[in-house]
Design a protein around this nucleic acid. Structure first.
Length: 444
RNA sequence: GGCCCCAUCGUCUAACGGUUAGGACGUGACCUUCUCAAGGUCAAAAUCGGGGUUCGAUUCCCCGUGGGGUCACCA
């Protein structure tokens, strides 16, 4: 693509449903391709079906693109506001004899407009699949408008693509079968033919078409589940496309630089939420502490409420523990129960404090020692490092499990938790000693 | 059913006719401060079947099989 031939693409959803994963990826591929060639992308709403088109869906699509960071250079245009343009073309076609009105409207009023099919064989080149040949005879004189005032999909698309000087049509593979019809229309109105690229579908785990019964399909659901837009963009880009090397983590800018339609896969790709999650985790790890804290507060209002007794410093100490344990922010909400020990002394059975084959007496002895040692650490240096160095040699000498398990259990009341030094530091000296004391009482 | 598209580990994919068929997710094992998480190391795991072409096919061609799309006065 040279500079003198500006690349112009379009993203033309019909506002008849929420923006779903598949359409979002189509938008992304269009965007990446367009920006790669320094072209422009047009956003067009195909709302000629008045009965099914809704403002609510339009809003969702706009918000979804914005969230992902996909921008467009022109639009949104609405086909419902362009009927005059279609009428002009329709009249011209009828005048020229390449279309005609027919009396067989099944909705009573008016006459439908049909294309006069020249019954030719059409060959078009698909950037991803190569040459595709169709015999258009079987298409017949298909209907292109409900009446002279109401164009149907194919006509509107062809006229718009022509008027908007679209150079590349990048769409889902269901568009393949539509292409010969649209080419016939292009030839009838004297429009030039854009370059086509049909990208494969995103499939459900059972290889069937991705739909609501397979779980989340709308972009909005992923946003609400606590996925980061950068992760979704990265994952979606790799679903059906792959760079020349084995790298997998890309920012939008890097994707634009690398993206190439010739490296788009031909076969459908199964949407794997596990892989998305692992990618999201990578992006969560990249977040700054402040951003992470912000997301945590947003997705875990409950935590914020319960930490009212804590200062931000304590909350900041807890966030790394949360960060390394979640793949999405939605999971943070599920973690609330696991973090109970941060908000109040745990309930547990004394026997649980005892490590493996130890006796309660041994556990008591260790806890007593731990309490004595921690007592000596000043409040203002009660950190993970100082706690650990004060106890480490003792634990190693006496057996780490034998010492650390009772300590950790006394502080958390759970079989699984972060390490005891971290727990102690987050809880603070006073609370830590109180819990150790409670454990000692239980054991005696 | 007609027409069209597609086919490498479970999944996403790499390999412009010659590789021990590579990577990632997931899975399993082991290591790393008791548990968990994180991290590290290792392992198992694929060219749909059959014919060609070729010295040599994942790669090119044909047939079959399987999957998908489309055949609206929806988009």
């Amino acid at each position: 693509m040279t500079r003198d031939s500006l690349t112009i693409t379009r993203f033309p959803p019909s506002p008849t449903g929420y923006l779903h994963i598949g359409r979002a990826r189509t938008a992304l591929f269009n965007f990446l391709f367009t920006k790669h060639y320094d072209g422009k992308m047009i956003f067009r709403l195909e709302d000629t079906d008045k009965a099914r088109s809704k403002k609510e869906f339009e809003k969702d699509i706009v918000e979804g693109l914005d969230w992902l960071g996909i921008t467009y250079d022109e639009g949104p245009f609405r086909q419902s506001e362009r009927t005059k343009i279609y009428q002009t073309y329709l009249r011209a076609m009828i005048e020229k004899g390449s279309a005609y009105e027919a009396e067989d409207s099944n909705e009573g009023e008016g006459k439908v407009v049909r294309l006069k099919n020249p019954n030719t064989t059409i060959t078009f080149t698909d950037l991803i699949r190569g040459d595709i040949v169709f015999n258009t005879t079987e298409l017949g004189d298909f209907v292109i408008a409900r009446n002279i005032n109401e164009p149907l999909y194919h006509l509107a698309v062809v006229v718009d693509d022509f008027e908007m000087e679209i150079t590349h049509v990048i769409r889902g593979e269901d568009g393949i079968s539509n292409t010969p019809r649209q080419i016939l229309l292009q030839e009838a109105i004297g429009a030039s033919r854009p370059v086509y690229a049909h990208i494969p579908f995103i499939l459900a785990p059972d290889k069937s078409k991705l739909s609501g019964r397979h779980g989340a399909v709308s972009l909005k659901e992923y946003r609400e589940a606590g996925y980061l837009p950068e992760a979704l963009v990265n994952y979606l880009a790799l679903l059906g496309w792959h760079p020349t090397n084995e790298r997998e983590i890309f920012s939008m800018e890097e994707l634009i630089k690398e993206f190439d339609l010739s490296r788009v896969q031909k076969g459908g790709a199964v949407f794997d939420e596990e892989k998305l999650k692992s990618m999201n985790k990578i992006y969560i790890a990249k977040l700054s502490d402040d951003d992470f804290l912000r997301y945590t507060k947003k997705f875990m209002p409950d935590l914020v409420r319960r930490t009212s007794g804590y200062n931000d410093e304590k909350l900041a100490q807890m966030t790394p523990l949360i960060r390394e344990r979640v793949h999405t922010f939605g999971e943070i909400a599920d973690m609330a129960g696991e973090l109970d020990y941060f908000f109040g002394a745990p309930e547990y059975n004394a026997q649980a404090l005892v490590w493996k084959d130890d006796t309660p007496g041994i556990a008591h002895k260790h806890l007593e020692h731990i309490a004595k040692v921690l007592e000596k650490i000043p409040e203002n240096t009660f950190t993970v490092e100082s706690i650990k160095s004060a106890l480490w040699d003792y634990a190693t000498r006496e057996g780490r499990g034998s010492v650390l398990w009772p300590m950790r259990y006394a502080l958390s009341g759970k079989e699984k938790s972060p390490d005891p030094f971290t727990l102690a530091a987050v809880l603070g000296k006073t609370e830590t000693l109180a819990r150790l004391k409670t454990a000692l009482v239980k054991l005696s």
